[in-house]
Design a protein around this nucleic acid. Structure first.
Lengths: 350, 350
DNA sequence: GATTAGCACTCAGGTTGTATGAGTGCTAAA
DNA sequence: TTTAGCACTCATACAACCTGAGTGCTAATC
């Protein structure tokens, strides 16, 4: 059967109406929406065709039609018009970017929050995780005679620090010695390459009776681990309950629980090649997401890392609007963090 | 009217049954619970008395009784038996403490999560906020010719850092100069004392044409602000929906929204003098919490700061169990962070 | 005087039956 | 090919009814 232009118009009208109302839409309503060129009976015939093509379905005999997953897919791929962001919307997003994204450390979390506020859907944010991170340099700063600060910087330009106190005193010279030893022995190594063996050797070479080296190195290990570990942040969960499809607790609870237990990042889809991805209903791998849609976008955090932000909602979510906002935000984030241009307020360099 | 020993026993039985079941409890059930020494009719008489004393109430004529706010208050103050934590429970808490609390930075968030997991209620966590924080020292570390790291340490021993890139190159000597200038001019000052005036003077004195000083100082300001600003973290919101009183969306939604929009810490109660506080129903100030109970505990983060963790649940929450777990956890956290014993692995100092 | 058995009464919640209306599919006419 | 008309299907809302748990009161009992 042919997907005529009229069928496409009707399908689109049905989907957009359903996106708005969450109610099955009938032939009469569509006849009106299209502009009364044809009668509702004609629409009915067309709808029957669309249904047999698998693009629509009926919740029951005498209800209107609702889009099927295939229908949404067609809509997203071909029918959907690009949503133009209003000046207000872009301004709001820009403001969010300016205000919230000060600390790189908390980008993930913040990005999720912003997305959720922007879309009124629950959102999640995760980092795509780094592999093969290494420490680029160590710095030890003497604070008091029995306290110093470790500063480590990774090859991906992330800096972490910790204050260490000792049971006994330490001289500046000792610290210097330790510092150079660390920088010669433990830089450029991945997590796996830092073996207990290596530490023992270094400890011996330095004549380190205090176990200082292991203290500092274990901090470095912690940093490397935390960077390799991906974490997920979810936010705006309460938005879910505003949607008619989740007025029933039986529907809402499993999804809410799934999103709340944000332990395992593997459960959230990440876009591989494209900057943006739309997963409709059963296209999701996770069971709990089987009748929700997920829109994910990725952005460049710089230094080879990518961040991922996503929105979870009912299959009838307003794809046009969501994708527009999400991609605009992702671009903004890329601009902010990517290309080595960190959000420190610094300008472009070299 | 006298609150006889028998009345107290009955009241307690009613409250504990209601805490378990969330169903109004009838005379017969109580007669059984007490041990059938008396008949249900007697219980009925006693219950009528308790009701006229304002300790019980009826949802409607032919239902059982439920505790009133006053009833809960009496229970919490006098009737409640201390809940003994099982070995498993303490072990679980200790493990959570050991595993999760590695980074002081994320204590708040983590503490909230742990509480929520421990109690199966939504939890919130906030810091009591610091006042009059000052920078104790600056360190500038040269990374490349056009990049350096700022490390600032506050008088409360919190260390923060940031990587700064410059449009042009810089010599080690320049950085040294800047470093000493910062340490002589901008240490020991509170947020208010760092005026634009002062910055201009310093900039002039240093002949700082790059605006480097303002770059570094604005980072310092950011750090001070972030420490003074209190933030709230909520977690485990989905637990709310497991409770029968929030099976109805109309009840759950306002509360969920209230807890989700965790912007304003002022909306959450913090215990003033006592280490633990129980707020039952309308004893809460916030409207959205008027028919929930909140249990909060505070713990010592060290250096004069206190953290606050709390649990939100229905008025019929299991006060005995919750308070036991919460206070154990709070003590653990105090031990971990308080008394200058930071989780860095360092020991007591001076 | 305190306790108990018995009984009438109340009321939430579940079940059943019925009406309503939105929407459909099919057929015959335009 | 389109349209009007009609019979048919269901979800939903609503009223009527039943049931069972629980109460308050009264009169008998300890």
């Amino acid at each position: 059967m042919d997907l005529t232009e009229r069928k496409r118009r009707i399908l689109r009208a049905i989907i957009e109406s359903y996106i708005q109302s969450a109610e099955p839409v009938g032939s009469k309503a569509i006849a009106q929406a299209i502009g009364m060129e044809v009668s509702s009976a004609t629409i009915r015939n067309e709808m029957a065709d669309l249904e047999s093509m698998g693009l629509l379905e009926k919740p029951h005999t005498s209800a209107g039609r609702i889009p099927s997953v295939q229908g949404y897919r067609l809509y997203v791929n071909e029918l959907m018009e690009e949503h133009k962001l209003s000046l207000q919307e872009t301004e709001r997003i820009n403001q969010a970017l300016r205000l919230k994204m000060q600390e790189l450390d908390r980008v993930l979390d913040q990005a999720g929050r912003v997305v959720s506020q922007l879309t009124n859907y629950p959102a999640f944010a995760l980092s795509s995780g780094m592999e093969r991170v290494t420490i680029r340099r160590f710095d030890l700063l003497m604070v008091e005679r029995n306290a110093f600060i470790i500063v480590v910087m990774t090859d991906s330009n992330i800096v972490r620090n910790r204050l260490i106190r000792l049971p006994s005193d330490l001289t500046e010279a000792q610290l210097q010695l330790l510092n150079t030893l660390l920088n010669t022995t433990f830089t450029g190594l991945t997590l796996e390459e830092i073996t207990p063996e290596l530490m023992r050797v270094a400890q011996h070479a330095a004549g380190d009776s205090y176990g200082l080296i292991s203290l500092v190195v274990s901090f470095a290990i912690e940093v490397l681990e935390s960077l390799e570990r991906r974490t997920v942040h979810t936010s705006g969960l309460a938005h879910l309950l505003e949607l008619p499809e989740y007025r029933s607790l039986d529907r809402a609870q499993p999804l809410l629980s799934y999103l709340s237990e944000d332990t395992d990042p593997a459960r959230f889809p990440i876009p591989k090649d494209d900057p943006m991805k739309i997963l409709i209903g059963p296209e999701n791998v996770a069971d709990a997401l089987k009748d929700t849609s997920v829109v994910v976008a990725s952005y460049d955090i710089g230094d080879g890392m990518r961040g991922v932000i996503g929105v979870v909602g009912p299959t009838r979510m307003d794809y046009a609007k969501i994708t527009a906002r999400l991609s605009y935000l992702a671009e903004g984030l890329s601009r902010l963090f990517g290309r080595g241009e960190l959000p420190d307020g610094r300008d472009d360099h070299k």
